[in-house]
Design a binder for these strands. Sequence first.
DNA 1: ATGGGGGTCATCCGATCGGTTGACCTGCGG
DNA 2: CCGCAGGTCAACCGATCGGATGACCCCCAT
Lengths: 215, 215
Amino acid sequence: MTTPAPSRHVRILVCDDHAVVRAGLLALLDSAPDIEVVGEAGTGEEALALAAKLTPDVVLMDLQLGEGIDGVETTRRLTSAPGDRPHVLVLTTYDTDADITRAIEAGATGYLLKAERPDELFAAIHAAAEGRTTLSAPVAGRVMANLRKPRPTLTDRERDILTQLARGIGNRDIARALFISEATVKTHLRRIYDKLGVDTRAGAVAVAKERRLLP
Amino acid sequence: MTTPAPSRHVRILVCDDHAVVRAGLLALLDSAPDIEVVGEAGTGEEALALAAKLTPDVVLMDLQLGEGIDGVETTRRLTSAPGDRPHVLVLTTYDTDADITRAIEAGATGYLLKAERPDELFAAIHAAAEGRTTLSAPVAGRVMANLRKPRPTLTDRERDILTQLARGIGNRDIARALFISEATVKTHLRRIYDKLGVDTRAGAVAVAKERRLLP
DNA sequence: ATGGGGGTCATCCGATCGGTTGACCTGCGG
DNA sequence: CCGCAGGTCAACCGATCGGATGACCCCCAT
């Protein structure tokens, strides 16, 4: 796997509301022989129109677009449009959790920071063209952190109960599944509620999922 | 940001149950001037003991360790031990969802595939030494995919209800919060259950969290 | 105008849940 | 040897939920 890298020709569309930034990117990308900028857009609407007409392989997208629809919405429409969908590589200044998850959920293939080194950007563009994901290190770090989060100390048995709970199973059947009495299930539930700071099963499941207490 | 890279000296411990692989890594890492292999372990237990004694900056960890505790458990103990905790960089053959998430949850700083290019490995080791995350492209791709997943079509109102539901709130108070009657809440709940394929509130919350239907 | 989707409301009833209190047993560590 | 944590069980009661049905309203697309 991970062969030397074929490096095919990639046609890209640049979308950023700052003309200066677009110009800078144009100049920078000009130095990359395999990358051709086929168009540039200053708004989301423009990007959608140009993408439909030019069918670029990759759209380099800023999330902050000033007027009109924002980068996330533009990304969503680009990646959910019918026909030849471009891969969207987000190139932005910020790496907040909200921005990252919204962009990813909208269908972005990669998420790079503008502070990234030029050669990383080139590599990421080629990767995106093939549908492979590239994340800037701080972005990868945040994604990891969100998957990790601290977890409360539940006992094994409590986790068993919680697992069933998350399947929407009633106390009677939880009891049957674990070969214990319904009374015992309720006892465990009470302790789980206490530990998670909730007082209903729905709340318990919410917290459990939130903090990834289940497989 | 992302400065040229300081590249300090990094002391690492290699943990893999295959002697041949360890030898290969040793030879490979020998060619990297800034990386010093201070020890090698063939089992998880050995890795824990050596890590405590040698205090490496980074532990290169295989997830499949044959005998004794596995790589995930070893990682968990390494990263939750008191004192100077090494950063764990997982280096393995497989990129299944289960392996990846378990490793990350256990506290791994990065996740590389053995098929990765040597220079990527070197870079990842330096990154890990500083606590920065590196993911092989396929791994990053999977993580992304899991964050993306398709979502069912809930109406706005249904999402409102679901949001309250996930807070463990009862029907009466959901009704109050949304200025509607309790009967209406129940009607919405029924439709939500149908759409999500469940029949209890706990199940609905589980599915909702699973597919990221909530903010 | 005709109809469907989305939102609202009501009523009835059995099943289930949540709260509380008290109890016994086991294994581990001081 | 005793205490404590974890796991098990019981009985009771009020509150809530889930299931089934039927109905009205508004908006918008056909």
